[in-house]
Each structure stands twice: as C-alpha cells, then as structure tokens.
C-alpha cells in the first residue's frame, strides 16, 4: 500500500504536467486544426528561463513564473506570425515538418544559450516532504498539481465566460460562420498560439525544480503530452487533463510494478491502443472526425 501510494503520488505529479502540456496541444488543435510538434520545446524554454530568472537574477518565484509565461507566449506569437501564417500550402504533412523544424531550431538555440548541461533548481517553497501513510509527497508536487488544475480551470473560464474565448470556440466549430459574424479568425489563431505556448511555458516553470532542465528535455515531454491529449480526446479540455493524470499514473505504476524500461514506452502503447479502439479518446462518447 505504501509503495503503491508512493507511485501514485509521483504519477499524479507527472500526470499533472502531462495534463498541462496536453491542454496546450488540445486547445491549439481545437482552434486551428494544427498539431504543434515543437510544443515540447516551449516547455523546455519555459523551464530554462525559469532557472535563469530565479537562480541567475534572483527573482522571486511568482513574478518569475509570470515573466516566463509572458516570454514563452511571446515566442509562440512570433512563431505563428513568422512561420505558420506564411505557409503557402497548409497541409498536415507540410505543417508537421515545419513544426518539427521549429523544434530543432528552438533546441539548437537553447543549446547555444544555456549550453548542454542540466540545471538544478530548488523547490518553490522549502517545506519538507509530507508523510502520508508512509509515502512521501513532495511540496513541489502539491504546487504542480494545484497550478495545473488552476490553469485548466482558468482555460475553462476563458472559453465559457469571456468574449474572446467564445469567439475562439466559434472559430473552432465553424470558421466560415465565425468569419461571417465578424470574428477576426487570424487574430484568434494568433491568440490560440499565444495561450497554447504560454501554457507550455507554465508547465516548464513548475517542473523546473523536479526535472533538472536541459536543452534536450522538450521532445519527449512534448510527445508524451501529445499522447495524453489523444488519450483524453484531442480537442477536449478536461479530457486532456484527465488523459494527463491517467498517463502519469499508469506510467508510474508500470515503472514501479513491471519494469523501468517501460517508462517511455507506456505513453506510446496507450496511444496505439486508443487510436485502434477509441480514436475519439477514452471519455468521448461520439466518434471524432478522422480526416
């Protein structure tokens, strides 16, 4: 039981991160029909920026998180404006290669700025781990889970309550109709990129203390976040969060009770199972369009 609980905690922690990354994929896909393969690199840049701001410039955690998020979101806006919008033939295969190109570019740039070494960063608050039934729960885990749920909540609020959110949702459902009622969908796409990459940035900031950030951490995180999004149903917000937690927990249990070699494979095995049997995600009742 104690062992199980320990794995469960670590699964929840990773799951929360996967969930936030998955949210980034999902909300972008929902608004633009695009899968951004460089999403993981934005997480990496978020984590490394966080390290520089808190360790290098000694900026307190909360303002550092906000600054990092703004920086990464701005980078996302640049990416949309300079690369995605200029694409002459926006077909899936072309967009896949462009976003992969961007991911190589960002990784290369990060390597120049931060070097090849991994960084260490202390937890947000210096509280000792909490003991629950013999299992240790890190304070940082609590931060991660709390912030993740907060992000998901505010995204939900954004879509349901704000004008921009509703407009973006309208764009996602029917671009033509949205255009007819005067929603500037180009601005909406830009905004979607900003929010999506910004969320990637936040994900980076909160995992910085537990992952030893380095320039090459992004690809795997991005791919796993993507698997989580598929698991919950690509485009579904709460589905993504749920998919993230599910992936995190299954991965932790798989590592704990079966084999550590399974850690990275778990995400992709689940991805295949979902694709083969429920391409709409495990919680969706309707089948999604397979285009």
């Amino acid at each position: 039981m104690q062992e199980f609980l320990q794995y469960f905690f670590s699964g929840m922690t990773n799951g929360a991160i996967y969930g936030v990354i998955a949210l980034g994929f999902s909300m972008l896909y929902r608004s633009t029909d695009l899968i951004n393969f460089s999403h993981g690199e934005f997480v990496m840049i978020g984590a490394l920026t966080m390290v520089t701001l808190t360790m290098g410039f000694r900026i307190p955690v909360l303002p550092a998180i906000i600054m990092t998020t703004i920086c990464v979101a701005f980078l996302g806006l640049l990416f949309e404006r300079l690369a995605i919008r200029t694409v002459r033939r926006p077909e899936p295969i072309v967009l896949i290669i462009i976003t992969v190109g961007a991911s190589i570019f960002l990784r290369g740039t990060a390597m120049l700025i931060w070097g090849k070494d991994a960084y260490a960063m202390p937890s947000f608050t210096p509280h000792p781990p909490i003991d629950i039934a013999g299992a240790r729960l890190l304070m940082q885990s609590i931060w991660i889970i709390t912030i993740s749920v907060l992000i998901a909540g505010s995204l939900h609020f954004f879509y349901k309550k704000t004008l921009a959110g509703k407009a973006m949702h309208a764009c996602a459902i029917n671009k033509q109709a949205a255009w007819l009622v005067g929603i500037p969908f180009k601005v909406m796409i830009l905004l979607a990129f900003g929010i999506s990459t910004g969320m990637g940035g936040v994900a980076g900031t909160i995992i910085a203390p537990i992952t030893m950030p380095a320039y090459d951490m992004g690809t795997m995180l991005g791919l796993k976040g993507f698997c989580a999004a598929m698991l919950g149903g690509l485009g579904s917000l709460w589905g993504s969060v749920l998919g993230g937690f599910l992936l995190g927990i299954l991965e932790a249990l798989g590592v704990g009770f079966i084999s550590s070699g399974l850690k990275d494979a778990m995400a992709f095995l689940l991805l295949l199972l979902v694709l083969y049997f429920r391409p709409g995600g495990i919680i969706s009742a309707v089948s999604v369009k397979r285009f």
């Binding site: 690369a83 694409v87 072309v94 992969v100 190109g101 190589i104 990784r107 390597m111």
Partner: peptide, 21 residues
C-alpha cells in the same frame, strides 16, 4: 559547429514555408 542544429531547423522551416511542393 554549435550552430549546426539551429541552422538545420531553420533550413527545414524555410524550405517548407516557401517551397512546400
């Protein structure tokens, strides 16, 4: 040297943006 990855990514993006065929 160290710029290799960056330049590679950039070339990939540029070709796909301007000559997608």
């Amino acid at each position: 040297a160290d710029y290799e990855m960056m330049v590679y990514g950039l070339i990939l993006m540029l070709v796909m943006i301007f000559l997608p065929q």
